[in-house]
């Protein structure tokens, strides 16, 4: 393993309903590693196993076989609470359906990962949250409830939130899936800018070729296997 790799997946299998009459294998012996600071895209037909792979990468789900090392630490032996802490500190998630907490404002949503870490909210932390909202161009609507924002604004809030704890890795599952093409372009530019500025590793599932073709690396998943692993 190269030291430069932030995530290493080895021999990952995923079988849903393992102990039922009809187990379905979704991932087959996946071996992948991602370089620190790289911008990666994952493409593939719907149902090919992309989300399953990303969820395993993000420790939201466990593989049936194989191991995931995040920053050199094997996650297989970690308990639920330790994994939660790891997610909180090292991984930012961006989902297709934004998944903001509708009861909270944009600013509060952005602060949430920090509050979950239970560290005291200092002025610096507030400044960071505000800066991030500035970065995604939402300073004006930061006190709006999440439900009172447009799809693009919600997604940008989710991006700001994913950055709050300065994670090493950002995992995005079709982040522009239901946005118009202008907004998609803006979001892409934003992600790329963050990737350049903070050296954050991005792993993005996308159906949008305009995003995929600009990534440093394109991984195509087909029927639960890596069909192509392309670099520029």
């Amino acid at each position: 393993m190269l030291n430069k790799d932030v995530v290493v997946l080895s021999h990952i299998d995923k079988i849903y309903g393992e102990n039922t009459k009809f187990p379905t294998q979704v991932l087959y012996d996946i071996n992948l590693s991602f370089e620190d600071g790289s911008f990666n895209s994952i493409i593939g037909q719907s149902g090919s196993g992309k989300s399953t792979l990303l969820n395993i990468l993000g420790t939201l789900d466990r593989p049936s076989n194989g191991s995931i090392e995040i920053q050199g630490i094997d996650t297989a032996k970690m308990k639920k609470n330790a994994l939660a802490k790891l997610r909180n500190e090292t991984i930012g998630f961006i989902f297709q359906f934004h998944y903001l907490l509708p009861e909270f404002t944009a600013l509060e949503n952005v602060l949430m990962p920090y509050r979950i870490s239970k560290k005291p909210i200092t002025k610096e932390v507030m400044d960071r949250a505000n800066d991030l909202l500035d970065l995604v161009g939402l300073s004006k609507v930061k006190n709006n409830l999440a439900v009172n924002m447009s799809g693009g604004q919600q997604q940008r809030t989710a991006i700001a939130r994913s950055l709050m704890n300065n994670p090493k890795i950002i995992l995005a599952d079709e982040p522009t899936g239901n946005l118009d093409s202008d907004t998609t372009e803006q979001i892409y530019e934003l992600l790329r800018q963050i990737n350049k500025t903070y050296k954050t590793t991005f792993i993005i599932i996308t159906h949008d070729r305009h995003i995929a073709e600009k990534a440093d690396r394109i991984i195509e998943i087909k029927d639960g296997k890596i069909n192509l692993d392309l670099r520029q």
Binding site: K80, R87, R161
Partner: peptide, 12 residues
């Protein structure tokens, strides 16, 4: 919401 919070690392 709980799902999101857990993804963000809230303890059970």
């Amino acid at each position: 919401q709980i799902g999101i919070l857990k993804a963000m690392g809230i303890q059970d």
